[in-house]
Measured scan of single mutants.
Amino acid sequence: RKWEEIAERLREEFNINPEEAREAVEKAGGNEEEARRIVKKRL
């Protein structure tokens, strides 16, 4: 699934746990840019 690939990239890029990465992607509706913004806000 594409969402899992996005979550994996976010996890590696921001050094967050898989659960946090998945939550961000879900919140963003699968949009990678939006997920990235969500993760950055949390850091």
Rank of each mutant, 00 (worst) to 15 (best):
N17Y: 09
I6M: 12
P18M: 15
P18G: 12
E13F: 06
V39T: 05
K27G: 08
R37F: 07
R1K: 14
R36Q: 05
L43M: 07
I38L: 11
G30A: 03
A21Y: 02
V25P: 00
N15R: 12
R36C: 02
R36Y: 05
F14K: 00
R42P: 06
K40S: 09
E33L: 09
V25K: 00
A28T: 05
V39N: 01
R42H: 15
G29T: 06
E19H: 12
I16L: 07
E23K: 08
K27N: 12
K40L: 15
A28I: 01
W3N: 07
R11K: 09
L10W: 01
E33P: 06
E5P: 03
V39K: 01
A21H: 01
K27H: 13
E23W: 12
V25M: 05
R36L: 04
R11P: 00
E23C: 05
E26K: 09
R9C: 06
K41C: 13
E13T: 05
K40E: 15
E5Y: 07
E34M: 11
I16V: 08
I6F: 04
K2M: 14
A24D: 03
R42I: 15
E20N: 04
I38Q: 08
E34K: 09
E4A: 13
L43S: 03
R37K: 12
E34F: 07
G29Q: 12
L43G: 04
E4L: 10
V25R: 00
E13D: 07
I38R: 04
I38T: 05
E19M: 11
R9V: 06
K2P: 12
E23V: 09
R22I: 12
N15K: 14
E19P: 05
I6N: 01
E33F: 09
R1N: 14
E12R: 14
E12K: 15
R9W: 05
I16Y: 02
R37E: 15
N17C: 05
E26Y: 09
V39D: 00
N17R: 13
K2L: 14
R36H: 04
E23G: 08
R37I: 08
K40D: 11
F14H: 03
A24R: 01
I38G: 03
K2C: 04
E8N: 13
N17P: 11
K27M: 15
N15F: 08
A24P: 01
E4T: 12
I16E: 00
I16C: 05
R9F: 04
V39S: 02
K2E: 14
K41T: 07
K2G: 13
R42A: 15
E32K: 04
E4D: 11
K27R: 10
R42G: 15
A28L: 01
K40M: 15
E20L: 14
E32Q: 06
E4I: 10
K41W: 07
R42V: 15
E20P: 03
A21G: 03
A7K: 04
E26S: 10
W3T: 04
A7D: 01
L10F: 02
R36W: 07
E34T: 08
E8D: 11
E23S: 10
K2Y: 12
K40A: 13
R11T: 12
F14M: 03
E8V: 10
N31M: 07
R11M: 15
R22K: 12
N15A: 11
I38A: 08
A28G: 05
R37L: 10
I38W: 10
N31Q: 07
E20T: 07
K2T: 14
L10A: 00
E20A: 06
L10Y: 00
K41L: 08
N31I: 09
I6S: 03
I16W: 02
F14N: 02
E4F: 13
P18D: 12
L10Q: 00
R11Y: 07
P18E: 14
A28W: 01
E5W: 08
E8L: 14
A7H: 03
K41Q: 10
A24L: 04
I38E: 09
V39H: 02
N31S: 09
N15D: 14
E5L: 12
E19G: 10
E12Y: 13
E20Q: 06
R9A: 09
A28V: 03
P18W: 14
E12V: 13
V25Q: 01
N31F: 05
N31E: 07
R1G: 13
R9N: 06
L43F: 07
R1M: 13
E33M: 08
E19R: 09
F14R: 00
N15T: 07
E33N: 09
E23T: 08
G30S: 02
K40W: 15
N17Q: 11
K2R: 13
E23L: 11
V39Q: 02
K2A: 13
R11L: 14
P18F: 14
I6V: 08
W3F: 10
E32L: 08
R1V: 12
E20K: 04
L43H: 05
N17E: 12
K27D: 14
L10S: 00
E13K: 05
E32G: 03
K40I: 15
E32T: 04
E12D: 12
R11W: 12
N31P: 00
E20I: 10
P18V: 14
K27I: 15
K2W: 12
E32P: 07
E8Y: 12
A28K: 01
L10R: 00
E33K: 08
E5F: 07
R37H: 09
G29V: 09
W3I: 05
V25S: 02
N15H: 14
G30T: 02
N15I: 04
N15V: 04
A24M: 05
E4Q: 11
G29W: 10
R42L: 15
N31Y: 06
E34H: 08
E26G: 07
K41R: 08
E19A: 12
N31L: 06
E12F: 13
I38S: 05
R42D: 15
R22F: 13
E4C: 05
I16G: 01
R11I: 14
V25N: 00
E19D: 14
R1H: 13
I6R: 02
I16K: 00
E33V: 08
A24N: 02
A7G: 04
E19T: 11
E20V: 09
E23H: 09
L43P: 10
G29M: 13
G30F: 04
R22S: 08
P18R: 13
W3A: 05
I16A: 03
E5Q: 11
R37N: 10
V25T: 05
K2I: 14
K27L: 15
L10T: 00
E26D: 08
R42E: 15
E12T: 11
L43K: 06
E4Y: 10
R9P: 01
E5V: 09
R22L: 13
G29A: 13
R22W: 15
W3E: 06
R9L: 08
R37Y: 08
E8C: 10
E32F: 10
E34D: 09
W3K: 04
E26I: 10
E33R: 10
A35D: 00
A21K: 00
A35P: 00
E4M: 11
A35W: 00
P18H: 14
A7I: 12
F14G: 01
E23N: 08
A35S: 04
A28P: 01
E26A: 12
G30R: 02
K27P: 00
E20R: 04
V25H: 01
E13N: 04
K27V: 13
G30W: 03
I38C: 07
G29E: 11
L10G: 00
E34Q: 08
I16S: 02
W3D: 05
I6A: 03
N15E: 09
R22G: 04
E26T: 09
G30K: 02
E32A: 07
P18L: 15
E26V: 11
K40R: 11
E8Q: 14
R11G: 08
W3R: 05
A21T: 02
A7V: 11
R22P: 00
L43A: 04
N31G: 03
G29D: 14
E32D: 03
R37D: 14
E19V: 09
E8R: 13
A21W: 02
E8W: 13
A35G: 02
R42M: 15
E32R: 04
W3C: 04
E26N: 08
R11D: 02
R9E: 05
E34V: 08
A35R: 00
A24S: 05
E33D: 13
E33S: 10
G30D: 02
R1I: 13
E34A: 08
R36E: 04
R11N: 03
K40H: 15
E34P: 01
L10E: 00
R36D: 01
E32W: 13
G29L: 12
E13L: 06
L10N: 00
E13H: 06
R9D: 05
R37G: 06
A28R: 00
A28Y: 02
N17A: 13
G30Y: 04
E13R: 05
N17G: 13
E23F: 09
V39A: 04
I16M: 05
N17M: 11
V25L: 10
I6H: 02
R1S: 13
K40F: 14
R22D: 06
R42K: 15
L43T: 04
A7P: 01
K40T: 10
V39I: 15
E20Y: 07
